[in-house]
Amino acid sequence: AQQCNGIYIWKIENFSGLQKAQEEERPVVMHSPGFYTGKPGYKLCLRLHIQLPSAQRCANYISLFVHTMQGEYDSHLPWPFQGTIRLSILDQSEGPERHNHEEVMEAKPELLAFQRPTIHRNPKGFGYVTFMSLQHLKQRTFIKDDTLLVRCEVLTRLDLNS
């Protein structure tokens, strides 16, 4: 999971257990392992929440954010991070008619989220509070074998220049 040419797939297992916790109003927040956007590359991780039924405005939504992490190439990389990040929840249907749920976002270099991290994981992330509703999750095969697949594809400005 560490080197992936800019594509990382995060397998979240036991999703029914997470949903049960959420239904019982227990907060569900998870971080992915760190992954590199290339070699050399930026170290990033994903943060996923299942918002509680009692949450204001974002109840029963999956929130998804990207965080920068301290990585082994940081001193050789341009900062702030600049590039394009495509976040997807993968449709695991059999056959050709797959409809992933996707959003594409452009890094905003003026934000703290894209500065070189000064601690293990930058507390500031960038992404979507209302990435996808739990209702929408039921409409296709987004859960298979009790597993949710989250994909993150990163194209950095470094990639574009090389």
Partner: peptide, 12 residues
């Protein structure tokens, strides 16, 4: 309308 990405802070 498409959702808008935002900065969001999370501390353990």
């Amino acid at each position: 309308f498409p959702p808008v990405p935002t900065e969001d802070e999370y501390m353990d």
